[in-house]
């Protein structure tokens, strides 16, 4: 993740990591790529040459191509002519990688943030514990559909204020 500095990171790498990490998510522009936790690593491999590792939220997430292009452009503008993007799958991204700031921004944007997950990959997915309405804060909400406008969200409705809302569903 990008919240802490990796061991052996040079000042230039740190600077470039901040540039790449501040690129907004193409589908959730209130969040930066650093906040959503998809930027896995950045290494300067030579003069003007940098390698960036990205991980997708979902295997089929179409935003990964836009993210790659946006990072490339941002780093070009920051004086790095040669940018290589790599997609990595391991370890898999989980919603726990979304930073505290990211969660707060999601809520302000009208999307209920994911709850903390448990570490195991097996077992049932918890979907029925209380999820707060991002509009009025009520915990009386119900599931309308497990899939919403994107693969990473579920569609819910608030029983108190009656507004429908997206919930960034947990991926453990």
């Amino acid at each position: 993740m990008v919240t802490t500095s990796p061991v052996g990171e040079t000042p230039l790498e740190r600077e470039l990591r901040e540039v790449a990490g501040s690129v907004p998510d193409p589908e959730l522009p209130v969040l930066s790529l650093a906040e959503i936790g998809v930027l896995r690593g950045l290494r300067v491999t030579g003069p003007g040459r940098v390698e960036v590792e990205l991980t997708p939220t979902y295997t089929g997430c179409p935003a990964i191509e836009t993210m790659s292009a946006d990072i490339e452009q941002a780093l070009h503008q920051h004086g790095m002519p040669e940018v290589t993007l790599r997609t990595v799958f391991s370890p898999p991204w989980t919603t726990d990688a979304i930073s505290a700031d990211g969660r707060r921004k999601l809520k302000e944007f009208g999307i209920a943030p994911p709850r903390a997950t448990r570490p195991a990959i097996s077992g049932p997915v918890a979907v029925d514990l209380a999820i707060r309405c991002p509009h009025c804060g009520s915990t009386r909400t119900s599931l309308l559909s497990r899939f919403s406008s994107t693969a990473c969200k579920a569609l819910r409705r608030c029983e108190s204020c009656l507004e429908p809302f997206d919930h960034f569903k947990e991926l453990s």
Binding site: P56, Y58, T59, G60, L144, S145, F147, S148, T150, A151
Partner: peptide, 20 residues
């Protein structure tokens, strides 16, 4: 409509797996 989105999302996940 909800099913339309659900099936398309599942299809997208599968397409992502297929590409890899």
């Amino acid at each position: 409509l909800e099913e339309e989105l659900a099936l398309a999302n599942i299809a997208l996940d599968l397409l992502g797996q297929a590409r890899v």
